[in-house]
Simulated scan of single mutants.
Amino acid sequence: MPSPIVNTTIQSCVLNATSNLIAQFITAYKSNSPYTINWVPVFQFVLFNTISNPPNFLWQSFLESAFPSNYLVPSSAAIHAAAENDEKELDREEKTHEILESKLHIQNTLTKFLLDQTIGAVANTLLFSLAFAGFRGQGYADAVVTAKHEFWPMMQAGWTLWPFVSLLNFAVVKSVEMRSLVGSLAGLVWGIYLSLLKG
């Protein structure tokens, strides 16, 4: 069975390829021209995603291990049973794993959110620009100029979507694997925007 990092990379690649195909369709529709698939940008998006997804998965795993979203506290039923000295009820809750309940760690969630929307967003934006400048055959110096030129417009566009996705993921979604799925689904929309931008 493939590892979670492989599963999320494959799923993300499929969604990125789909977003590029949709973007090509939108471009053809808007220009009133026949829809013919250009496989080069599809391949470029899949290649970039294959390279960038594993480090992103590891980044999200690091954030979760360093700043866990949840912590365990005695459940209200367990507190009530303890106050009543109800040993039988406490034993029952322990056996059924109801003695503790999970609470959202707000400080850790906000810390992860801020790190993801600063360090993570900056790294992803710069790497995307540099990679696609390289795909266009630009040398390193020209690629850096392109990345600098594209940086703020892409960051500002990203802030219309990714902070909401990030906060939802950290506050509601429990596992890194499921967060990757939510991120990939949001990435379908974002990929269409990027494909239109790079088209």
Results as ranks from 00 to 15, higher is better:
residue 2 P to T: 05
residue 4 P to K: 08
residue 5 I to D: 03
residue 6 V to K: 02
residue 7 N to G: 11
residue 13 C to Q: 09
residue 13 C to A: 10
residue 14 V to M: 14
residue 14 V to G: 08
residue 14 V to Q: 09
residue 18 T to H: 06
residue 19 S to A: 05
residue 20 N to P: 11
residue 28 A to F: 03
residue 31 S to P: 05
residue 32 N to H: 13
residue 33 S to A: 15
residue 33 S to D: 11
residue 33 S to K: 15
residue 34 P to L: 02
residue 34 P to A: 06
residue 40 V to L: 13
residue 41 P to N: 03
residue 43 F to V: 15
residue 50 T to Y: 12
residue 50 T to L: 15
residue 50 T to D: 10
residue 51 I to V: 12
residue 57 F to E: 05
residue 59 W to H: 07
residue 59 W to K: 02
residue 60 Q to W: 03
residue 60 Q to C: 08
residue 64 E to P: 01
residue 64 E to V: 04
residue 64 E to I: 01
residue 66 A to R: 07
residue 66 A to Y: 05
residue 67 F to H: 00
residue 71 Y to S: 02
residue 72 L to N: 11
residue 76 S to A: 14
residue 76 S to F: 10
residue 76 S to I: 10
residue 78 A to F: 11
residue 80 H to T: 15
residue 81 A to I: 01
residue 81 A to G: 08
residue 82 A to N: 13
residue 84 E to C: 14
residue 85 N to V: 06
residue 86 D to I: 02
residue 88 K to N: 13
residue 88 K to S: 14
residue 90 L to M: 12
residue 95 K to Y: 09
residue 97 H to W: 12
residue 101 E to N: 09
residue 102 S to Y: 09
residue 104 L to Q: 05
residue 109 T to G: 04
residue 110 L to R: 04
residue 110 L to W: 08
residue 111 T to S: 09
residue 113 F to I: 00
residue 114 L to W: 04
residue 115 L to G: 06
residue 115 L to N: 03
residue 116 D to Q: 04
residue 117 Q to M: 04
residue 123 A to H: 09
residue 124 N to R: 14
residue 124 N to F: 13
residue 125 T to R: 12
residue 128 F to A: 11
residue 129 S to Y: 00
residue 130 L to G: 04
residue 132 F to Q: 01
residue 133 A to V: 03
residue 133 A to L: 00
residue 134 G to S: 03
residue 134 G to H: 06
residue 135 F to V: 06
residue 137 G to C: 00
residue 137 G to S: 01
residue 138 Q to V: 02
residue 141 A to D: 15
residue 142 D to S: 10
residue 142 D to K: 13
residue 143 A to V: 00
residue 143 A to K: 05
residue 145 V to F: 06
residue 145 V to K: 14
residue 150 E to P: 00
residue 151 F to M: 04
residue 152 W to I: 10
residue 155 M to T: 08
residue 155 M to L: 12
residue 156 Q to Y: 12
residue 156 Q to E: 10
residue 158 G to P: 04
residue 160 T to L: 12
residue 161 L to W: 02
residue 162 W to F: 06
residue 164 F to G: 07
residue 170 F to Y: 13
residue 170 F to L: 03
residue 174 K to A: 14
residue 176 V to G: 00
residue 177 E to T: 14
residue 178 M to C: 12
residue 179 R to E: 02
residue 179 R to V: 00
residue 181 L to H: 09
residue 182 V to I: 09
residue 182 V to Y: 03
residue 186 A to I: 07
residue 186 A to W: 05
residue 189 V to F: 13
residue 190 W to V: 01
residue 190 W to Y: 10
residue 193 Y to N: 02
residue 194 L to F: 08
residue 197 L to V: 08
residue 197 L to I: 00
residue 199 G to I: 08
residue 199 G to N: 14
